[in-house]
Design a protein around this nucleic acid. Structure first.
Length: 681
DNA sequence: TTAGGGTTAG
């Protein structure tokens, strides 16, 4: 609320200070208005019910209210009380009040002003004022370094630390944690080690805060060994020290060590649990993440999930496409009032999109207040549409975002361009790509070139795609050649496929998918000699085939199927069902596409091979175990095969079912005999 | 003062 405290228009005017006003651009308003509630400066007196209690801030503002002419000494304690974002507006106005009367802050007042602006995140104002101070104290350096570190200006934080050091200050137990956090973010191991050396020299290496910050710095710079050494010699360890190390082991894939530490931690807190959950999620250990989350809810203690925990567990549902689990976590978040948190909301959008429910994703996006729709939220929504092949909606969302005044970044364009690519919006995609730098000041990166190669390749414009690869300013990596290979497969362009695949065999020799893709193309062309050569190469290099698998969630339980899998308890029913299904589909006009089969075997054998693809087993299980009308959501770890794609279109028509298939690259929604990708994939 | 974090192409 706006509370009018005083109209300075009634006060005698003195000459404004144009330097400060122009440098800092504080509000020129003569009226002090605060965004704070009255309780912030007039509270309730605990000992008296009748008279309002004067808080320290109220007492400090009193001269302004009474129009008493203040002198310079009046301002310093006031600035000291106006720390934090809530008071930024009123702080600026008090600054204005002072400047307009021509008061030059002395060193003490200036220091308080720097601290005020720094604490509220107005780093420009803090920086300008700081620069005007002749000999900043260590405390003032700490305030500035902390502000730069806290608000993400890590380079400036480190630079200021170096300046402080060269002016003769060694730093203290407050300096080091801030600067180390910045070193960690910048992955600047060199400065980080210098800080370590310095802290060691002045006996602060094993200080709880400094030690923990050092552990974190080493962890983030990839030196887990050094982090462990420090942890082991620390006499007094904070729960944060344990948490930093746990996160480090999780980051390095040393899951077992992290689990061991987690089991031994004397007093774990919510951060410890969240570090474990997010560690599991980031390592693809979805079941462990969800199990630990459930265990935490049952755990009878003060450890309760907070917004970071919710945000960390949701990607586990997204990863495994466990829609019902995700919905339950959404319900839980809502029950504790956390679903309105913008970051949680963004994680929910991503979860629903990745679990195949674009409707729910959009619903969460719409529930976000317009002022809470930040860059990441917009990016998530654009990407959601893109991955579902809804290019037109991705473009519309992008335009809405621009309209809302949010500046796009590199991720936005990755989503937007891939959306255009999947929907065949070739000219639109090229237009946005060409506008990236001149209109939006975003430098195209390799992933954007990848999208454009994909876009041109899918459209069959191979000459332009190849030209783009030749002319791009960076070396073409596996993603670029991978896009070209996939497009070559789609258009049966064996010459280009050969070029792309040979590059990939060098760039990622272990990736079995490239060999198989080229091999399939040879098989399709009946070039069995080349197929044999490739098979020999795969065997000779000891490359292991990535087995295709599909899974489906039925009644909250995930059922996984490999190709030719007979391990499921309902296998017998599934195979019988598939046999009957093949006949029904054939009667409806389905012709098995045996060209996708690698082996040089009889047609009958090829057909049988097709019938047992993992996605067909999953869909059969789904049809057998759900009621009519239920949407079947299937996920596959590789790209859906061409024959299954055709078969699913028939199944959607015969059984009047909607089926959403998430494959390695995108979503396919099968409905009434067609697929949302328009067979353009 | 330190620790856990949502969006990224083929």
């Amino acid at each position: 609320m706006h509370q009018r405290l005083c109209s300075t228009a009634a006060l005698p005017k003195s000459k404004p200070n144009p330097v400060l006003l122009s440098a800092l651009n504080p509000s020129r308003s003569f009226t002090i208005e605060a965004d704070v509630s009255p309780e912030d400066y007039v509270g309730s007196n605990p000992s008296s019910k009748s008279s309002p209690y004067r808080t320290p801030l109220w007492n400090l503002l009193h001269p302004l209210l009474k129009h008493e002419p203040p002198d310079l000494s009046f301002y310093a304690p006031l600035f000291q009380h106006l720390t934090g974002r809530n008071f930024l507006r009123i702080g600026r106005q008090v600054h204005s009040h002072m400047a307009i009367r021509g008061w030059e802050p002395n060193g003490f007042t200036a220091a308080k002003m720097v601290a005020m602006y720094a604490s509220s995140g107005d780093l420009d104002a803090a920086g300008v004022l700081f620069g005007r101070i002749q000999n900043p104290s260590l405390i003032l350096y700490n305030s500035m370094i902390r502000a730069y570190s806290k608000y993400g200006c890590h380079q400036k934080s480190v630079e200021l630390y170096l300046r402080m050091h060269s002016s003769g200050f060694q730093g203290d137990n407050f300096t080091f944690p801030f600067v180390l956090r910045s070193c960690a973010d910048l992955l600047n191991l060199l400065i980080g080690k210098c800080v370590h050396g310095l802290s060691l020299r002045i006996g602060l290496e094993l200080d709880t805060y400094v030690g923990t910050s050092l552990i974190d710095m080493y962890v983030k710079c990839g030196e887990i060994g050094n982090a462990r050494k420090l942890f082991d010699i620390m006499d007094v360890r904070d729960v944060s020290s344990w948490n930093a190390l746990i996160a480090g082991y999780m980051r390095d894939g040393e899951i077992r060590v992290a689990e061991d530490l987690f089991a031994r931690i004397p007093c774990s807190n919510i951060v410890s649990w969240t570090a474990m959950i997010s560690g599991y999620t980031q390592n693809g250990l979805v079941e462990q993440a969800l199990t630990l989350f459930d265990e935490m809810l049952k755990y009878d203690s003060d450890v309760k999930p907070n917004w970071v925990t919710i945000m960390s567990v949701l990607p586990a549902c997204a990863h495994s496409a466990a829609l019902e689990r995700g919905r339950k976590i959404h319900d839980y978040a809502a029950s504790i009032g956390m679903d309105s948190n913008p970051s949680v909301c963004t994680a929910l959008i991503a979860m629903y999109a990745k679990c195949g429910s674009l409707v729910d994703a959009r619903c969460c996006f719409d529930q976000l207040l317009p002022t809470h729709r930040n860059l990441v939220a917009w990016n998530t929504m654009v990407t959601a549409y893109a991955s579902h092949g809804r290019g037109t909606e991705a473009v519309a969302t992008f335009e809405e975002m621009i309209e809302a005044g949010v500046r796009p970044d590199t991720v936005t364009f990755t989503g937007l361009l891939s959306g255009c690519s999947h929907s065949g919006l070739v000219e639109m995609g090229l237009k946005y790509f060409n506008n990236m730098k001149p209109v939006f000041s975003v430098e195209p990166r390799v992933e954007h070139y990848g999208c454009i190669v994909d876009l041109l390749g899918r459209a069959g414009r191979f000459v332009e795609a190849k030209k783009m690869i030749d002319e791009m300013p960076m070396e073409a990596g596996a993603s670029i050649w991978g896009a070209l290979l996939a497009a070559s497969k789609m258009h049966k362009n064996l010459d280009t496929a050969d070029i792309a695949a040979r590059k990939l065999f060098v760039l990622e020799p272990e990736n079995s998918g490239n060999y198989i893709l080229l091999s399939n193309m040879y098989a399709e062309a009946g070039m069995w000699g080349e197929v044999d050569d490739l098979r020999a190469a795969i065997q000779g290099r000891g490359i292991r085939k990535n087995p295709g698998c599909s899974w489906i969630e039925v009644n909250g339980k995930v059922h996984l199927f490999l190709g030719e899998d007979r391990s499921h308890t309902e296998s017998k029913e599934i195979y019988l069902f598939l046999e009957a299904l093949a006949e029904r589909m054939k009667a409806a006009g389905y012709v098995p596409d045996t060209t996708v089969v690698l082996h040089d075997v009889s047609e009958e054998e090829k057909e049988r091979n097709l019938t047992t693809h993992s996605e067909k087993l999953a869909v059969a299980f789904g049809l057998l175990n759900t009621n009519p009308g239920v949407v079947l959501r299937i996920t596959k770890n590789l790209r859906i095969c061409g024959d299954c794609h055709t078969a699913f279109k028939f199944i959607s028509k015969i059984y009047e079912r909607v089926m959403v298939v998430r494959d390695l690259n995108r979503f396919h929604q099968f409905e009434k005999g067609t697929c949302s990708c328009g067979d353009y994939w």
